[in-house]
Amino acid sequence: MASKRIRPEGGEGRRMSNASRPGALHTAFNMLALSWIIISELLLSAHCLKDLKIFVPEAVLMGNAATLSCQYDLEQAALYAVRWYFGQEEFYRYVPREAKPTFVFAVAGINVDLSNSDATSVTLKGVTRELSGTYQCEVSEDAPLFHTEIRSAHMQVVEMPKDDPVMQVDKKVIGANDNLKAVCTLGPSYPPANISWTVNGRVIYPTPQQRITHDAYEGSTTYSSLELYPHSQVLLDFFEGKYQRSVTLKCTVTITGMYHKDVQQRIGLNMAPPTTISPNLLGLEGSKRYANGDPDNSALTGASQRCCICCGAFGAISLAIFTMAMAQL
């Protein structure tokens, strides 16, 4: 009975071994195919598109030309196409194997200079501020892989203001207890200008005692106001210096690194201590009398009163003499 059990088990084992051979062959084939694909990719990647870089001007003056460049290394691979996009819209394509390799697509505001455009760069003529935005360069290599890469960069079109900035201050000389207010103004520009403030080269930052406001909109005048209160740190430091007689207040106006102008004013510092006005000068003590009869115990005030009494007596005598002379006539 034991031998009868062993034989069926042995026969079944041989049948399973024979049945597993197709699975083993299939696995071996898959491994071979995968190895071939990996090796092929490595061989092909050694000579294909790489090092794609885009060069777009960060800022360009409105009305000027702008050249956008796309640099890449194909090694031994062939170029299939170069495409340029503004936002998501394609406006230029270069396909070297075509009879006419350059193609221009209609995009609002874009005017391509074909004489200065090729496989690595494209030139835009007379840019307007509407062309500020993101540009993309897409490069594709030819068959068999058609490997493609894309890079993007931002360009700002700048519209300069027609006039220089202007600063106005409410006081030319200030004391320790005075406020100082100044306004810096620049005409319309695109994008709006940035304005910063300094005193003797020291940057002024907003605090409860140093208020700065900025009002700027695209295509309109830019304003910035500065108000320094008596206890602002920047003024306290200058008034504490015994030999400081004036400071230089400056506003600096910039636009995207292409525009930079300073306007400055000299502000005098009045170092005299604050004075108070006597109530007598305001007539607040005129009705008061003191023990000696003087309103303020002042010899000068008493002398003035005696002078007025003498003047009154002299006037009365003169009038009497004049009246008697007329009566005799």
Rank of each mutant, 00 (worst) to 15 (best):
M1H: 10
A2V: 14
R7Y: 04
G13S: 13
A24T: 14
A24W: 08
T27E: 10
T27W: 04
A28T: 15
F29K: 08
L32W: 07
S35K: 09
I37Q: 11
S40C: 00
E41M: 14
L43F: 05
H47N: 09
D51N: 12
L52F: 11
I54S: 07
F55N: 08
V56C: 03
V60Y: 02
A66I: 12
S69D: 09
D73S: 13
L74M: 14
L74C: 07
E75S: 12
A77L: 04
A78I: 01
A78E: 09
R83E: 11
W84G: 05
F86W: 08
Q88V: 12
E89C: 04
E90R: 14
R97D: 14
E98L: 15
A106M: 12
N111M: 11
S117L: 12
K125I: 12
V127E: 02
Q136K: 13
C137K: 02
E138T: 13
E138K: 11
E138A: 05
V139Y: 07
S140I: 06
E141C: 05
D142G: 07
T148L: 09
A153N: 05
A153Y: 03
H154M: 04
M155N: 06
V158Q: 04
V158W: 04
D164K: 14
Q168N: 14
K171S: 07
K171M: 12
K172V: 06
G175H: 02
N179P: 00
N179G: 00
L180C: 02
L180K: 02
K181A: 09
A182C: 05
T185E: 07
P188Y: 02
S196A: 09
S196M: 02
W197M: 01
W197Q: 01
G201H: 04
R202H: 07
S220N: 09
T221R: 07
T222P: 03
Y223V: 00
Y223F: 13
L226Y: 09
L228I: 00
Y229K: 13
D237H: 01
K242N: 10
Y243A: 10
R245D: 13
R245V: 09
R245P: 00
T248K: 08
L249E: 03
C251F: 03
I255V: 15
T256R: 12
Y259K: 09
R266N: 15
R266S: 15
R266F: 04
G268N: 04
P274M: 02
P274S: 04
P279M: 05
N280T: 05
L281D: 06
G283S: 00
E285N: 12
K288E: 13
K288R: 09
Y290I: 03
A291K: 03
N292I: 05
D294C: 14
N297A: 10
N297Y: 01
S298D: 15
G302L: 05
G302S: 14
A303C: 07
R306P: 00
C308D: 07
I309M: 12
I309Y: 10
S318K: 03
L319H: 06
A320D: 06
A327G: 06
A327K: 06
A327T: 07
A327R: 04
Q328I: 09
Q328N: 06
